[in-house]
């Protein structure tokens, strides 16, 4: 039950092979058509639902 935006953000996070996860900056670069606000809104939802988590700091994310 993801929206299109949530799905895009989640799939990018899921596909990142880095141990520290994907950086906020990379999400913004890959999703140029979304605003920073849109991306942060998606991240909040995904974290709240337990689909993703922050890693080494609040700007890196991995999927569960």
């Amino acid at each position: 039950g993801f929206t299109a935006n949530q799905s895009q953000v989640f799939n990018l996070i899921k596909s990142c092979p880095l141990a520290e996860g994907i950086a906020m900056q990379s999400l913004m670069t890959s999703l140029k058509y979304l605003t920073t606000y849109d991306i942060r809104t998606c991240l909040k939802f995904l974290i709240n639902e337990g689909h993703i988590f922050s890693t080494v700091d609040d700007d890196h994310f991995k999927s569960t």
């Binding site: 141990a19 520290e20 639902e49 337990g50 890693t55 569960t64």
Partner: peptide, 29 residues
């Protein structure tokens, strides 16, 4: 991996918390 043991520990703890949260959300329906 270029992560320190402390960073690896933090990531694993955050992962476990997220998994618990996911289970909680699924249980709520």
């Amino acid at each position: 991996s270029n992560l320190t043991p402390e960073q690896q520990k933090k990531i694993e703890e955050n992962r476990q918390r997220a998994l618990a949260r996911r289970a909680e959300r699924l249980a709520q329906g």
